[in-house]
Simulated assay, not measured.
Amino acid sequence: MIIEEVIGNIETLDKRALHIERVFLESDALLKRIQRVVTDHGKELGIRLKDQAKLRDGDVLYLDERNMIVISVMEDDLLVIQPTSIQQMGEIAHQLGNRHLPAQFEGRDMLVQYDYLVEELLEQLAVPFKREKRKVKQAFQHIGHHHD
């Protein structure tokens, strides 16, 4: 079966009385438009998304009257940064930006993928953080940029 578009997201679709199969992906695989995957029930699928569509946790790839196939993102190893002031937030954001590290935000938490150098930087700057495994809703995406 070839999947060319996402039907919706499990959070907004009615899922009563449906059998749900899951495709487990690492977060960076969410950026791939073309890939071959296998559900937790052993069903092989080809994904060939149109345009620049990106997958998200909970996206529904297939749906009929009894079955649904859903993307489930695996947990990432993250640094959860919790600055105590706007100044501290600005300083760490500037430092991470200089390293071209993508970040995501959930409430008051800044999330970056684990990197021992960033961990050392946070300790040096006395910025509160913790390392944890957490599921992200979308992939960490690097933004292309070159210095002239």
Rank of each mutant, 00 (worst) to 15 (best):
A93C: 06
Q87S: 09
K133F: 09
R66V: 11
G46S: 15
R33F: 05
G42H: 00
Q82N: 07
H142A: 14
A126M: 13
E26M: 13
F105T: 15
I71E: 00
T39M: 03
Y116R: 13
I143E: 09
R16L: 05
H19Y: 12
T39A: 03
P83K: 00
N67I: 12
D148T: 09
Q124F: 13
Q113E: 12
Y62P: 01
G58A: 15
L111G: 01
K135A: 08
L31M: 06
D109P: 07
L122M: 05
E21A: 10
I69V: 10
K43N: 11
K43S: 08
V6N: 03
L79R: 06
E65I: 03
Q88C: 08
I71K: 05
P102R: 12
H146P: 08
Q124G: 07
Y116D: 15
N9A: 05
D77E: 15
E65P: 07
L111W: 01
Q35L: 04
L61S: 11
A103T: 15
D51N: 13
R66D: 14
R33C: 00
R36H: 10
A139H: 05
I3S: 02
H19G: 06
V38Q: 11
H19F: 09
M89H: 09
Q35E: 02
Q113L: 14
R134H: 07
P83L: 06
E44I: 15
H94D: 13
M68N: 11
L45V: 03
E65C: 01
E120P: 03
K137Y: 07
